[in-house]
Design a protein around this nucleic acid. Sequence first.
DNA 1: AAAACCGCCTGTCGGC
DNA 2: TGCCGACAGGCGGTTT
Length: 283
Amino acid sequence: MDYYYNERMPELPEVETIKNELVPYIKGKRIKDIVIKRKEIIGFPNHKSFVKKSKGKKIINIRRRGKYLIFELNNGNKLLFHLKLSGRLFLINDLSPDCELKYERLRLVLNHQGLSFIEPRMFGRVYLIQKNIPKQLKGFQELGPEPLERDFNKTFLKAKLKNRKGKIKSLLLDQRIGCGIGNIYADESLFRAKIHPKRSGATLSDDEITRLVRAIKICLKAAIRYKGTTLSDYFRPKGIGGNYASHLLVKAREGKPCFICGTLIQREKISNRSTHFCPRCQK
DNA sequence: AAAACCGCCTGTCGGC
DNA sequence: TGCCGACAGGCGGTTT
């Protein structure tokens, strides 16, 4: 049975792809102007200080941390983007003021090029940070280790799951644990690790934790290789989608046969999140 | 402390 | 066909 797929948010592989594809166009470029079309899109500070502290500065590097994109400026300040559910960053060549992009909230004007922050739902934000991290970015400060780095391992995850009664699905979505993981890759990872999403974190055995760590790394790496998952709203800076959707094992496959055992994939709300899993393979 | 729940915001869908 | 309530969802905030 088909239904409307709301799994649309950029997660780690999507943000990583956006970062990789922005670097050749943006790195080393000067921000000649900043056009704010909706000032609420600026999470910190107020929009006037935001412009004052970033206009005319050079973008010396672009990094990713969790689901955040970080533009490092040559004055030591940083621009942090969070795309949340429907945010997109588009490279544009037409810089004329009458080039109206639907849902455009902010535009960085560079040399002969622009970077447009499109965000229909207005959940996404851009922050300017200097030395001190504002309280709105507490979550950024508390992010756990990057899942593709060595310090995201069995020891780390075991410590985090110890005494946790919550369901493993929701624990993976906690960015202090599953940094950069969202609704798609949480489900994909649990399927690959053969762990039922409703299992309480504390009940996972050492072997299951090892499998989960491996599964997370494999899923994320594969999705990066295919430049992310486009089900509805994620697009890369040049406007094209990612190619991982056809490789998904459970997400968006409700009612379709499990690739391992043929049982129909189920969808259920777990901790208020639409969750896909194989009721037979995942224990 | 941690788990559960709420609200932000807007497009899309299903029911009538 | 058009209206409208329900739904989705990351994450910060609030309540339990």
